[in-house]
């Protein structure tokens, strides 16, 4: 059974918490207050005054904030890469990869981050992390270093799920240099039939 079905099947079991009975009195009092409250325009005017004060403050600090922003960006990047290096479980590593991908989404590829990702691709044995790294690397299809590492990984990888992901990736990149690692996969007796099939299809496509 998939995790998805397990959760759906146990949906009602999630409703196992009860609200404290003490809150009923609080609610009654609040209901009375809310339903018999004073005029709304007065509240709106007060709120508008607070908003205008807040807006002034925001304008004043915006300039200083902008100045600090760049330094913070570098600090964030370093912290994210450190978190990735320090992650000692598969789930914390996966989460660190996603954090990097999210927080640095709109930026150019960063050498430090790419190296951290390449390291996972080469050494890490966890399939989910590798798949997440491949997704992240595919955002830079024109980067030669990225393409090289994906092809190298295709030649060295033995985990079927990651092999399939890499085959799909080099197919997207239409990378002719993938032919050699693809042949290696096809000729390897230990490769799964599904992986061999995908590799053969891609090889045929590249040979066209």
């Amino acid at each position: 059974m998939s995790l998805e079905h397990f959760i759906k099947d146990h949906k009602t079991a999630f409703d196992d918490s009860k609200m404290s009975e003490d809150t009923t009195l609080d609610f009654e009092a609040r209901l009375q207050q809310e339903l018999h409250q004073g005029s709304k325009p007065v509240r709106r005017l007060r709120a508008m005054r607070y908003v205008s004060i807040a807006a002034s403050v925001v304008l004043l600090i915006a300039l200083g904030y902008w100045y600090q922003n760049e330094q913070q960006r570098i600090e964030v990047r370093d912290n994210l890469v450190s978190a990735l290096d320090a992650s000692d479980t598969n789930s914390s590593r996966l989460e660190a990869i996603y954090d990097i991908e999210d927080q640095l989404a709109d930026e150019e590829e960063d050498e430090k981050i790419l190296q951290a990702f390449f390291k996972i691709l080469k050494t890490d044995s966890d399939a989910n992390s590798k798949i997440a790294v491949i997704d992240a690397l595919l955002k830079f299809p024109d980067n030669q270093l990225v393409r090289n590492h994906l092809i190298d990984a295709l030649g060295n990888e033995t985990e079927p799920l990651v092999q399939l992901k890499l085959i799909k990736s080099v197919a997207l990149l239409r990378e002719q240099r993938a032919k050699a690692p693809l042949k290696k996969i096809i000729e390897n007796e230990e490769s799964l039939p599904l992986v061999k099939g995908n590799a053969s299809d891609l090889l045929a496509m590249l040979n066209q």
């Binding site: 998939s2 146990h10 079991a13 989910n128 798949i131 997704d135 399939l164 992901k165």
Partner: peptide, 26 residues
Amino acid sequence: ESYELQQDEEVLTEELDNTSLKFEDV
């Protein structure tokens, strides 16, 4: 921070062993 990502096809790792899956853990 969320942004448009490539359609991320679902690559499933092995199914979890249902017998060892406990509701509380989930």
